[in-house]
């Protein structure tokens, strides 16, 4: 029972976020979004930028663990 709580919350959260995401992209087609830089006015540019940046940050961070991660008591040794 308990496990289902978090899982079902996660599922409905995912559902709503995807719906909002789709609406935001659709909205982009209904008006001309003015930006400071013309290439950012391409349909869905901020969405694409947000998605790619996020994945890049997480993946690069994960890779950096190889160089930056030490044991918890590293400074006590």
């Amino acid at each position: 029972m308990k496990k289902n709580d978090l899982k079902s919350m996660g599922k409905s959260f995912t559902k709503y976020i995807l719906i909002i995401g789709a609406l935001l992209i659709l909205l982009d087609f209904t008006f001309h979004r003015h930006e400071y830089f013309s290439f950012a006015e391409i349909y869905g540019f901020p969405a694409f930028f947000g998605f790619v940046s996020f994945v890049f940050i997480v993946m690069l961070g994960k890779w950096l663990r190889k160089f930056l991660m030490r044991k918890e008591d590293y400074y006590d040794q």
């Binding site: 995912t14 976020i17 995807l18 909002i20 995401g21 935001l24 992209i25 909205l27 982009d28 008006f31 979004r33 003015h34 930006e35 950012a40 869905g44 540019f45 901020p46 969405a47 694409f48 930028f49 947000g50 998605f51 790619v52 940046s53 996020f54 994945v55 997480v58």
Partner: peptide, 19 residues
């Protein structure tokens, strides 16, 4: 509207990336 939509797209799709 430009600014709100732009910011929301960035944030919502970053959340989608997390999921």
């Amino acid at each position: 509207l430009d600014h709100v939509i732009s910011q929301l797209q960035l944030l919502v799709f970053a959340i989608i990336a997390f999921l």
